[in-house]
């Protein structure tokens, strides 16, 4: 009997949860770094330069992050296709809102919206950074990060798209945070209520924080 984790439904759930935990951690550190841009231009440049040039971050953590994002998306799509195949005939009348919330039922929709946003975000920040370093060979400009950030947030349309995307992020996190614990097998009478509260807090604070940072840079440049 095969006990391959990746080929069983439970194993895939656990892998989905583990990649979710990793992305939750990444998101928190991304938020903290962005917060520096509100507090101090120099500190933001310094931290961004470190993240952009440190070998461990660039050549180990960055590929792991990319893999984590693509794995989370790919596995989510694969599981959704299996789930749809499991019910080929739908109910004529179905009332899912009587027993579950919208966020838990639409993780794929909110997830795809986040991925579309990531496309824009990569275009805005990641691709220029890759071009600078790996095509143009410019590794030694520690002051470019803050002006680049400011330049992007001069555009109102872009700021609005970012803010809407953070709403989808919040909806995704509101279910994803506590769901990851459940999938990893962590459900306990004493701790699960706390995890759910922490999840709600995380799903509000992080996206709202990102929105405030985007709006801060837009309005301070008017």
């Amino acid at each position: 009997m095969s006990t391959k984790l990746s080929s069983s439904s439970v194993g895939r759930k656990v892998l989905m949860a583990l990649s979710g935990f990793f992305l939750l951690f990444f998101l928190a550190q991304h938020f903290v770094i962005n917060l520096f841009s509100v507090v101090s231009e120099d500190t933001f440049n310094e931290v961004s330069h470190f993240m952009g040039t440190n070998s461990l971050v660039q050549f180990v953590l960055q590929p792991v992050l990319l893999f984590g994002v693509l794995f989370h998306l790919g596995m989510g799509m694969y599981l959704e296709s299996k789930n749809r195949a499991a019910r080929p005939i739908k109910y004529a009348l179905d009332k899912p809102s009587e027993n579950s919330n919208w966020m838990s039922r639409n993780m794929l929709i909110t997830g795809i919206m986040i991925m579309l946003f990531l496309g824009l975000h990569f275009y805005d920040f990641w691709l220029p950074e890759i071009k600078d370093k790996f095509i143009d060979g410019k590794w030694d400009d520690p002051t470019k990060y803050f002006p680049h950030l400011q330049h992007k947030f001069q555009d109102l349309t872009r700021v609005i798209i970012y803010c809407i995307s953070f709403v989808f992020l919040g909806l995704h996190l509101s279910h994803g945070f506590q769901s990851a614990f459940q999938s990893a097998g962590f459900n306990h009478n004493k701790y699960t209520p706390l995890i759910k509260k922490l999840g709600t807090l995380y799903a509000i604070l992080i996206p709202v924080g990102f929105v405030i940072i985007a709006l801060f840079h837009y309005f301070t440049q008017l």
Binding site: S8, S9, A85, E98, N99, S100, S179, S183
Partner: peptide
């Protein structure tokens, strides 16, 4: 779990609908 997967049931996404119903 192996038999459950063979039968073609879907994957749990922790909506919690099952425990309500």
């Amino acid at each position: 779990v192996e038999q459950m997967d063979k039968e073609g049931f879907g994957n749990c996404t922790n909506t919690g609908a099952c425990e309500v119903e």
